[in-house]
Amino acid sequence: MNAPVDALVAGLLAGYGVAIPFGAISVLVVALTARTSFRVGAGAGLGVAVADGLYAGVAVVGGTALAAVIKPAAGPLRLLAVAILLLLATRTVVQAIRQHRGRAAPARDGQGLNTPGRAFGAVLALTLLNPTTILYFGALILGRQASAPFTPTDAGIFVAAVLAASASWQLVVAGSGSLLGRLLASPRGRLGTALVSSALIVLLALRLLLAD
């Protein structure tokens, strides 16, 4: 697989891996759509996608700057990155199982977010406050840059693919309608999306582990 295609595939997997779990933010996006309009829900969903893209960009820029420094420790750093990704995948499943058993925290209802701009800004801020996202992209890029660094072009493709994957999923969530929204927000729906997300993260870890 050539480098640009590899960057595209890695970005799509990373974007869907971080976006698919149906947590409180996803419930908020569905609730906003149901209470207001698709435009408001889409604004909220794009806020999530932009936050994911920003975190991916920060991780790529930081990893590129450190590429020469971390190259001598490529092996151990790649194993560390794989371990972090596997821990995040495990954490996603464990949290989903706890929610499935009825211990989920109540989701915010988004009162006052009645325009696309307000919804975008508020949900962007909420998503940026999640430290797991930067840990996820940081581990992924750290391991990649230690062994097979992205070129500037490949880095741009990766970030664009993350943004596109996250945005496409969030728009599906926003446009899901009340029936699909209730299904995805149910305990079984959350468990299913968490398992899919964890599988994608494990696949990313394996790709990183087996990278040349």
Rank of each mutant, 00 (worst) to 15 (best):
T33N: 05
A34S: 14
R35C: 02
R35L: 03
T36R: 12
T36H: 15
S37M: 11
F38R: 11
R39E: 15
G41F: 01
A42V: 10
G43S: 01
A44K: 07
G47N: 08
A49K: 10
A51L: 02
G53W: 02
V58L: 15
A59N: 01
A59V: 05
A59L: 06
G62M: 12
T64M: 15
T64K: 06
L66Q: 04
A67D: 06
I70K: 04
G75A: 07
L77G: 00
L77E: 00
R78C: 02
L80A: 13
V82Q: 06
A83C: 10
L86R: 07
T90N: 09
T90S: 13
V93G: 03
V94E: 12
R98H: 05
R98V: 07
Q99W: 08
Q99L: 05
H100S: 06
G102T: 04
R103F: 12
A104E: 07
A104T: 04
A105Y: 05
A107C: 06
D109R: 15
G110F: 06
Q111I: 13
G117A: 14
G117D: 02
R118F: 10
A119K: 02
A119M: 02
A122E: 08
V123P: 06
A125H: 00
L126D: 00
T127P: 02
L128T: 04
P131D: 08
P131K: 13
T132K: 15
T132I: 15
T132P: 11
T133L: 11
T133K: 11
F137R: 08
F137C: 11
G138T: 12
A139Q: 06
G143W: 00
R144G: 13
R144H: 14
A146F: 04
A146G: 10
A148H: 13
P149E: 10
P149T: 09
F150H: 12
T151R: 09
T153Y: 09
A155P: 00
A155F: 03
I157D: 03
F158G: 03
V159S: 04
A161P: 05
V162P: 03
A164V: 14
A164T: 04
A164I: 06
A164H: 03
W169C: 07
